[in-house]
Write a protein that binds this DNA or RNA. Structure first.
Lengths: 190, 190
DNA sequence: TAGGAGTGCTAGTGATGCTAGAATAACCTC
DNA sequence: GAGGTTATTCTAGCATCACTAGCACTCCTA
């Protein structure tokens, strides 16, 4: 029994190591640099070990993405709770979201562009994912009026996500970013 | 001279053939199915021929994307000009944009997610690209008020793009799509 | 008709995600 | 403690990817 638990503990530790290495690698060099070979070398195990922990590369990306959601939730919460006025809170949360996407582009991609095998709009979605979404919802709640809160949150989320991905993909100039953000949030602030 | 022009004509025709084949393939099976081998087989030439026309796979995707922009511009224009009321026109254009993204998901991806080597927010961007953007701008113009028209158009575009990509990536349920769209466009209609 | 320029193909490179089967290490029983 | 079984990890390789070097052929020119 004790040996079994120790093995499980070691396995869990190694799994954390893999995820951490993947995250380091991707944040430093982007997803195209994360190959199973490089990742295996980084954790000092052979490639097949990765597959004993994860179904495939996508699953590793998904695990990294879940960590990203936890981080995002923390940053959004900090932005929301440090503001007093509801409009200011929404503006700060929006800015925090944008900053997250800008400062961790590869992580953001894993969360919102790649890694389709994560359950999203369902109760089975990871808690961190719900937590991040909840922060957006609480930020918009005081300003929702008679609109459906869930749908309104999703719409706001879509707006933020669209602006960030278009900018990141080179479709929008960085110039004007602040003003676009202000325009978007202004439209959700009454 | 005549031989030269005939050769150029044949080259241009073959280039069109490659783009058309790529588009067919991608719309039928998605981008992961578009390999240089399959594409070469489809146009009945060997792989290296592709590289005598395009710098690489990305360039082929870019060419397909440009076709997509032309199509999108046509559909947006049809939606905009067939409505009389400005608010209705905006709603119709938004719906047309969403329908395009939903019905041609792989093409939409090439236009807005992949193919980074296309110039976008610059005068060198392909005419079709400007045309599509112009349609959005003209749709929102009567409702812009005192906001900067260009930035407002970009913000609206971001909202539409975000909703569609989140839904396509499984981040948002299809259920509620219409109402989210209405919420977004409503926020841009005063 | 002979020579030459240009065009397309065969074959191959290095890298990818992933896996089968050998080899090694760890554990339990006597 | 030694021997045998079980579990784990590695070596080596597969199929496929985008892309390219160099030969062979075709077609035009003179």
């Amino acid at each position: 029994m004790s040996i079994q638990t120790r093995r499980e503990r070691e396995r869990a530790e190694r799994e954390r190591l893999i995820i951490a290495a993947a995250r380091e690698l991707v944040e430093a060099e982007g997803w195209e640099a994360v190959t199973t070979r490089r990742l295996a070398e980084r954790v000092e195990y052979s490639q097949p070990v990765l597959y004993s922990h994860f179904k495939g590369k996508d699953a590793i990306m998904a695990a990294v993405a879940v960590e990203g959601f936890a981080d995002l939730a923390i940053e959004l919460r900090a932005a929301r709770t440090s503001a007093t006025d509801p409009r200011r809170a929404l503006a700060d949360v929006g800015a925090a979201y944008a900053a997250f996407a800008e400062q961790r582009p590869a992580l953001y991609d894993a969360m919102f562009t790649h890694a389709v095998d994560l359950p999203f709009a369902s109760p089975e979605a990871p808690a961190a994912l719900h937590a991040a979404f909840d922060e957006l919802r609480e930020a918009i709640r005081p300003l929702a009026g008679e609109d459906d809160l869930g749908l309104l949150t999703e719409t706001l989320w879509g707006g933020l996500h669209g602006l960030m991905t278009l900018m990141r993909g080179g479709r929008l100039r960085h110039e004007g970013h602040e003003r676009r953000l202000a325009l978007l949030l202004g439209r959700f602030s009454r």
